[in-house]
Simulated scan of single mutants.
Amino acid sequence: MKRAFFVTALVASLSLIHTAANAEGCTKGAVVGGVGGHVAGHHGVAGAAAGCAVGHHEAKKKDKEKAASGAAAASQPAGK
């Protein structure tokens, strides 16, 4: 019974890790957050998780700004 629970928990956690690894900006943020967390008191894993979240948020914000500036440029008249 314990083994079945352990295997189920392991498979669930690995599937969550796989989907989170594809997030844009996550890798860069995780590296920076992991180093910062380690230096700030040996909390590298917590720092990496927070850095991943912040990196992903910043990447989405950058993409949204890029799309907005592209839409604004497309709406400008070509002759002026």
Results as ranks from 00 to 15, higher is better:
14 L>P: 01
15 S>N: 07
15 S>I: 01
15 S>G: 12
15 S>F: 09
16 L>G: 15
16 L>A: 01
17 I>K: 04
17 I>D: 02
18 H>E: 12
19 T>D: 07
19 T>H: 07
19 T>F: 08
20 A>W: 03
20 A>T: 10
20 A>H: 04
20 A>E: 06
20 A>Y: 04
20 A>R: 03
20 A>F: 07
21 A>G: 04
21 A>F: 12
21 A>L: 14
21 A>W: 08
21 A>M: 14
22 N>C: 06
22 N>F: 13
22 N>T: 13
22 N>V: 10
23 A>Y: 12
23 A>T: 12
23 A>Q: 13
23 A>E: 11
24 E>G: 08
24 E>I: 12
24 E>N: 12
24 E>P: 04
25 G>R: 09
25 G>H: 08
25 G>M: 06
25 G>K: 07
26 C>E: 12
26 C>G: 11
26 C>K: 10
26 C>P: 03
26 C>F: 14
27 T>L: 15
28 K>I: 15
28 K>R: 11
28 K>W: 13
29 G>N: 08
30 A>F: 00
30 A>M: 12
31 V>W: 02
31 V>N: 05
31 V>Q: 02
31 V>P: 00
31 V>T: 05
32 V>R: 03
33 G>I: 01
33 G>L: 01
34 G>V: 02
34 G>N: 00
34 G>H: 03
34 G>M: 03
35 V>T: 10
35 V>E: 07
35 V>C: 11
35 V>L: 15
35 V>D: 06
35 V>N: 04
36 G>A: 10
36 G>K: 08
36 G>Q: 06
36 G>I: 08
37 G>L: 06
37 G>H: 04
37 G>S: 05
38 H>I: 00
39 V>F: 04
40 A>L: 15
40 A>M: 14
40 A>R: 09
40 A>Q: 06
40 A>I: 01
40 A>T: 07
41 G>I: 07
41 G>C: 09
41 G>F: 06
41 G>E: 06
41 G>W: 03
41 G>D: 07
42 H>F: 10
42 H>Q: 14
42 H>T: 09
43 H>W: 04
43 H>A: 08
43 H>S: 04
43 H>L: 10
43 H>M: 09
43 H>I: 03
44 G>M: 11
44 G>D: 09
44 G>I: 02
45 V>Q: 02
45 V>K: 03
45 V>M: 10
45 V>F: 09
45 V>I: 15
46 A>W: 13
46 A>E: 15
46 A>R: 14
47 G>W: 05
48 A>K: 09
49 A>C: 11
49 A>D: 01
49 A>R: 00
49 A>E: 00
49 A>M: 13
49 A>Y: 02
50 A>K: 03
50 A>P: 01
50 A>M: 10
51 G>K: 04
51 G>Y: 00
51 G>A: 03
52 C>W: 00
52 C>L: 07
53 A>V: 15
53 A>Q: 06
53 A>R: 01
53 A>T: 12
53 A>D: 05
53 A>S: 11
54 V>A: 13
55 G>K: 04
56 H>I: 06
56 H>A: 15
56 H>L: 08
56 H>T: 15
56 H>S: 13
56 H>F: 13
57 H>M: 13
57 H>N: 09
